[in-house]
Design a protein around this nucleic acid. Structure first.
Lengths: 163, 163, 163, 163
DNA sequence: TTTT
DNA sequence: TTTT
């Protein structure tokens, strides 16, 4: 289909440390639970109410998976950009079940840490990159030389050129 | 939780005509299935592959529900902005099941028709608003007078001021 | 034009305290400068480079203007959702000049504080809402009662119903 | 700065055919003007009003530049995702001037054609890809094999692997 | 300069 | 079940 867009943008907090698996290829895959929450005052009762939504986030993007593995802990606040995917699986009774996830495919998606250095919350102490200072951008590649013929380019996280 | 964002942006096509229910309050609620799809060439086989994702969209926003009810048909291309919500229900065996939907809450979200007038496709003939011309904006309210003291404002869809 | 979208999403830091003006109507208007920044390693030189982009943000949305006025200070990290607008003005020579801004219109846009409580940075000490705790959502209204007949609804910031 | 996001999402129409330049490197750069527009009914006068906003879009992303060059014409409706950038230049009097653009950097951004095939409008006849059928995805690369060890991957537009 |  |  031409002209399709499937995009999810979340700003929320990790409910637990990320879980890392490895594919046969050696590529890391990260699963994590992210909470978003909104509050409002009930019109009838006047009480303040809050609703928290939990999201299953799966990271196949190698660079972002590494960032998640190294720097994210329970309680960390993150900006996430991925796509919606629903996959089918079977429970023990052989019945079809469906799970919808926010997926960051290989070479796609975005992940940004929104905590200040050493600010870990929520019970877990996570370690923001110290040596790198604030300048590690755990995001997609970027190239900013306007009109530049050469065109510097590199992944942010690691110096190796990943492709 | 301070600083939370839960946003889904879709551009896709309706798989079927929207389904309209009414709440006890009389407010319309629209359910529709939206397909997004992406294609790529398989690196190994060289074959072109395509993956279609289906999204359950639920509209509680009255104005947008009316737009969907009146103008959207099977095949229509739409821009949708909503939030992710997962709700729990029980199947006939009494087991917990979960369904994740893209929800446009009351007074929230956005819906834009992306087809040209009278362009209905995919089997269903849907009728773009003729009499209204281009002026049906199925979106949120807007007010564009910079620095304007008075502040014009109105819902796009209907002239009544809905609140 | 049917089917138009004009949306800007920023996560960045305030370069200075917000400036507040008042319209004749008494409505507050907030101007602020927001920095976003990205870093990458130059492919040629191997040096790390960084580019900071400065954005002019203007808030006509009353509730969000109040939030900015009360809680935002230089250095604060924010999530902002607005629209692009370019306005024309004349310099002292009478020449046409253009300025592009990220505008949060009345009843539109979103603003989220992303700092933890009392975490002020960048030189300014800003005070996150203490009494409100984390539950002040400086965003648009929301209503989360699925299928609810009544429909609780209220602005987050203040209890008054603004329309 | 850790945790920065600078994103613009537009759905609008081209005001003119795209202009293509080439860098010394041979890479194409596309400039185009995109209109977004919103309409509302003035609260005071009851008249319908409309405001059109014009955006300068610049494409450094090679694949997307090629798509723009080949398929986009005046009047075409597009989905665009880029970032805000303001650049400084000097007018003939040597005075500093600033222009803000929506930029799709190398390897970044998104461009989707939202018109149906052969639907060219607005005066210009643009030719949607006929032979290619639906399989021209003018977007970023994607890889959808969940958990797949191999990991198919390819640019959508051309079969060559661009990096 | 687009679109409806 | 859509779209190309």
């Amino acid at each position: 289909m031409a002209g399709s867009v499937n995009k999810v943008i979340l700003v929320g907090n990790l409910g637990a440390d990320p879980e890392i698996r490895r594919l046969n290829s050696g590529d890391p895959v990260v699963n994590m639970r992210v909470a978003t929450s909104e509050s409002w005052r009930d019109r009838q009762s006047g009480e303040r109410r809050e609703r928290t939504e939990w999201h299953n986030v799966v990271i196949f993007n190698d660079n972002l998976a590494k960032v998640a593995e190294q720097y994210l802990k329970k309680g960390a606040k993150v900006y996430i950009e991925g796509q919606l995917q629903t996959r089918k699986w079977q429970d023990q009774q052989g019945q079809d079940r469906y799970t919808t996830e926010v997926v960051l495919q290989k070479f796609r998606g975005e992940l940004q840490m929104l905590d200040s250095r050493g600010q870990g919350e929520g019970g877990g102490q996570y370690n923001a990159p110290a040596a790198r200072g604030s300048d590690f951008g755990a995001s997609s590649p970027n190239e900013s030389q306007r009109g530049g013929g050469g065109g510097g380019f590199s992944r942010d996280l690691d110096d190796e050129i990943p492709f």
